[in-house]
Design a protein around this nucleic acid. Structure first.
Lengths: 146, 146
DNA sequence: ATGCAAATGCGAATGATTCTTAATAATATT
DNA sequence: AATATTATTAAGAATCATTCGCATTTGCAT
């Protein structure tokens, strides 16, 4: 129950009641530190002894995204969405196309580019989505030595 | 039938037979110049008098992506995939979150960043996916004047 | 403690995508 | 130009992710 109070605050900041399920989902997202699908979250909670309905998982995630506490996006070649907590530091991910591992990377290279887009196209940038994919260190090694 | 020979070449380059349906899909993708969903393509073809099955559209798109003639990705807040032809110039898109228009932008700001990732994480970058979203010139104006 | 609004469970409904199988069409060969 | 070979397509069923509807339960202000 360590971070419970922390999550309660977070939820209050979005005008949301603090419930067992919401706390559990926030905790799972924080603990894992990589984007997860609704079903992965559902299974993690189950393992932790939290009984929950899959549709509730979806509903909670939708709410968190709505209140800007979480982000939803898609990884390449997947037809399901993943979710992660909004971090202080804006971040992206490296996706290994071989082992499908995800490596979070803090920081972002796009500030200058977005200014350029605003100047050149009169487009008001509100955000972006960037995923980089390739071979992680482990899988690169194996490929090299082959 | 203007570009037929052009598409035939393209398909041959991927070891694919040139068929009415594949040509029609390539033509629709080229003509529209923005990413389209499988269903949008299906409807466009229908309007052009090309009778095709939706599952064939999916299968052809999958094949084109496999052979690296097209790219598949997801736009924010959509749970369906869109497809576009691979262009000579690597490109990204500006998505207007208000009117949902898509504006293609040639060029890419990520070369330096990818080198940095390779150095810092030993990650071998094969590609990336970047979509920028915000308000297009038209929709920005309306917001300003409000 | 009580009541009301918000949250949840459960299963059905929807929407996108993939699969299966029989029929058809595109190419290489004659 | 006809044929054999093999890839491609149609049609709809099946699957998977996600959303919805409604009855029940829970959190929280009073």
């Amino acid at each position: 129950m360590a971070g419970n109070e922390h999550f309660r605050q977070l939820l209050k900041s979005g005008n949301l009641k603090s419930t067992k399920h919401r706390n559990a989902i926030l905790e799972a997202l924080e603990k894992n530190d990589v984007p997860l699908t609704a079903e992965e979250l559902y299974l993690h909670l189950k393992e932790d002894g939290v009984s929950i309905s899959l549709s509730t998982v979806y509903r909670i995630l939708e709410t968190l995204v709505e209140r800007n506490l979480a982000a939803r996006f898609n990884l390449p070649d997947e037809n399901k969405a993943v979710y992660e907590l909004k971090h202080d530091q804006h971040r992206h991910h490296l996706l290994c196309v071989k082992c499908r591992k995800l490596l979070p990377v803090d920081g972002c290279p796009l500030e200058a580019y977005e200014k350029l887009l605003e100047d050149r196209f009169g487009f008001t940038v509100k955000g972006h989505q960037l995923e980089v994919f390739g071979y992680c260190a482990d899988c690169s090694e194996k490929r090299d030595s082959k």
